[in-house]
Design a protein around this nucleic acid. Structure first.
Lengths: 210, 210
DNA sequence: CGACTTTTTCGTGTTACGGTAAAGAACTGG
DNA sequence: CCAGTTCTTTACCGTAACACGAAAAAGTCG
């Protein structure tokens, strides 16, 4: 008859990582929700983006759980802000979370679905989309490179930052790879559309004959 | 001056693609929910997985919208099944969806968050996790290769299948790349743990003074 | 008969995520 | 001073995603 509201042990399987991503972000330094919301410190935000409402909501939840503590900092010229710091429980929770096996995420990229259904869709918007994405990923690649150069000018990191450098490397690699497959897709698209024109799309209307 | 926002009018219709992924899957051939749930035809399911309840719920929704039509097939020896076919509205909807710009997804891989917070977590479980993931992605790579060999033995596809071949190529590349960065991470992890031991973690207990 | 497979469906809860909005403070500028 | 902007936080709402737990209907196998 006792109802478990916050079932700490119930979260055995859930992989929720928005909260944990925030915790991870706060391991580096205390931050405000506003700051977190802007960029996630130009780091975790790269592979885990969330808008400010999500951040704030998650911050309240984490505070309720005692994983972080907010200290109000009175500012002049600006509204007071809440700087959140990891508590020792928060660190323990992060550690505990990190010790559980992760499950591989799906790619879930709309573009792949579109490519899969290539023969049923219009290729021009797809091409435009691919080009936009190519630019996007190239852009990100450039940003990562700049951050890498600025934060780790000699390519090495202190032991405490080794993971951050590694994550950055992986992010860099990821952007490069996605940009590459965008290029490949554009390439194929060109060779396809030169060989066969936009297909007549009449066949889809045939089955109306019930 | 007001800022120019990228104002494509998002009419509340979701960017979500589970439904669209199913539509895309059904472009190839009619399938039952059971079949879809099992593997998504060993194709789209690679980058978009969902359990059978999700599939069935989405199928009902698509049927309600008139995007697919279910035909009951009487079987002997097994319960009757509902084979779903794309309607012309479904094709049109897919086409329409595919013509909208997509937004790049975040990576959202727990492993990256853990790497980012590397100095705050235990490395042994992380290492085990990385090894499991490495194996997983290698396995997937092998499966993709086998499918590729079986479905496109000469490396080329009919125009109607060009997109599927391309998507498969991308999936293949993705698995290879993720496996590679798992290897890199494991490598770094080894060199780190030989240099510095597991850190003493006492500093996190200091702030208990409240 | 019971156990199992195939196929479909329902219910319930939690999280995620996006939009719209607002509220309070202090500075900026006409 | 009023209007607007930046900074900072918060609330409400809706839908999608996802996980967990069941179960029903029909037929096979032991």
């Amino acid at each position: 008859m006792h109802k478990v509201k916050y079932a700490h042990m119930n979260r055995g399987v859930c992989e929720v990582a928005l909260g944990d991503a925030i915790l991870a972000c706060l391991t580096e330094r205390p931050m405000t929700g506003y700051e977190l919301a802007k960029t996630f410190d130009a780091s975790i935000g790269f592979f885990w983006k969330a808008d400010h409402q999500q951040i704030y909501r998650e911050l309240s939840r984490l505070r309720d759980r005692g994983h972080i503590r907010g200290r109000e900092v009175v500012q002049s010229g600006k509204p007071n802000k809440l700087v959140y710091t990891l508590t020792s429980e928060g660190r323990a929770a992060l550690k505990h979370w990190a010790a559980r096996p992760s499950s591989p995420p799906s790619i879930k990229d709309d573009l792949l679905v579109r490519l899969y259904a290539l023969d049923c869709i219009d290729i021009e918007p797809l091409r435009a989309d691919l080009m936009a994405r190519l630019e996007h990923h190239r852009d990100r690649f450039g940003r990562y490179e700049r951050i890498l150069k600025k934060r780790f000018p000699d390519g090495t990191a202190a032991p405490a930052d080794a993971g951050k450098l590694l994550a950055l490397h992986i992010g860099l690699r990821h952007e490069r790879v996605v940009a590459e497959w965008c290029e490949e897709a554009l390439d194929r698209l060109s060779s396809i559309s030169t060989r066969t024109n936009v297909q007549p799309l009449e066949d889809s209307q045939r089955e109306n004959k019930g």
